[in-house]
């Protein structure tokens, strides 16, 4: 994590709301995310956490509220600007790596795509960067020309992370990044993510329903229920001394091993 005092939050959200007809997707969401912080969002299915994430990432247009990224008004941005931002300073890691990877294209091509999209035109350098990132996510360099379809689920997820981080984004959205993985693979991925967050000073918005994952990965936690934020604070405080009835129920419902 970055220790320099930062003058302003990287992501600032005020009064965000999204409705599906008369049904509430999420409402009254406000928070600030500072550089280097990982914000976990937990809640059961249908609590609005995925709606919130897709509004933040620009996949959906909220009905009300404001989102500022690094001082820029995201909702007032033109589509080209917004899309450029989502390829450069922002990134999105999907739960299912198949949604975030091009399965018919080699691992190197997958990592290189964002670089080429922002103008990289030197094959040798693109490949070198690809090899470097494969190393960082612990995939053997010899696999650079293999397609992701030949990779295990854990490797695919690590490749998706490499593909997203190659342009050094400052803000990464993650939707259940460890969902669907074996427990041992999950641990390895968590360790990798923690290291990347720390070394690159990333800010992360992490949506999950896995409380063990947020405890290890998130600095701060936001609990959602029925589209509203019922509680937020330092992660271990929210988990160990939950103030809201719903959070208390959520925490006490976790099976212990």
């Amino acid at each position: 994590m970055n220790t320099r005092p930062e003058a302003a939050p990287l992501l600032s959200v005020r009064g965000l709301a999204k409705y599906y007809g008369t049904r509430i997707g999420c409402t009254d969401v406000s928070f600030d995310l500072w550089p280097g912080e990982v914000l976990g969002i937990v809640g059961e299915s249908g609590s609005g956490k995925s709606t919130l994430l897709s509004c933040l990432a620009g996949h959906q247009q909220p009905d009300r509220g404001e989102i500022h990224f690094d001082g820029r008004d995201l909702l007032a941005m033109s589509e080209p600007e917004r899309r450029r931002l989502s390829r450069t300073e922002q990134a999105f890691v999907h739960q299912n790596p198949r949604d975030g990877l091009r399965m018919g294209i080699s691992a190197g091509g997958n990592i290189g795509e964002r670089l080429m999209a922002v103008g990289a035109r030197n094959y040798g350098q693109i490949r070198e960067t690809g090899l470097d990132w494969l190393g960082r996510v612990e995939i053997a360099g010899a696999r650079i020309d293999d397609r992701p379809s030949a990779f295990s689920g854990g490797m695919q997820q690590r490749l998706q992370i490499a593909r997203n981080l190659v342009t050094a984004p400052r803000l990464v959205f993650m939707d259940e990044p460890t969902g669907g993985l074996d427990v041992s693979v999950q641990a390895r991925l968590l360790d990798l993510l923690r290291g990347l967050v720390r070394d690159l000073g990333l800010s992360v918005v992490l949506v999950t329903h896995d409380l063990a994952v947020v405890r290890l990965l998130a600095h701060r936690l936001m609990v959602m229920k029925s589209g509203q934020v019922v509680e937020q604070g330092v992660t271990d405080q929210v988990l160990d001394d939950p103030q809201h009835g719903y959070t208390q129920l959520l925490v006490s419902s976790v099976l212990q091993v």
Binding site: S184, A187, L190, D191, R215, L216, R220
Partner: peptide, 21 residues
């Protein structure tokens, strides 16, 4: 609080909570 824990306030608990591996 996060900044305080990083720089100022150390804590040795009886439990070790770490990422496996």
């Amino acid at each position: 609080i996060l900044a305080l824990r990083r720089q100022v306030l150390g804590y040795v608990s009886q439990f070790l909570r770490v990422v496996p591996r």
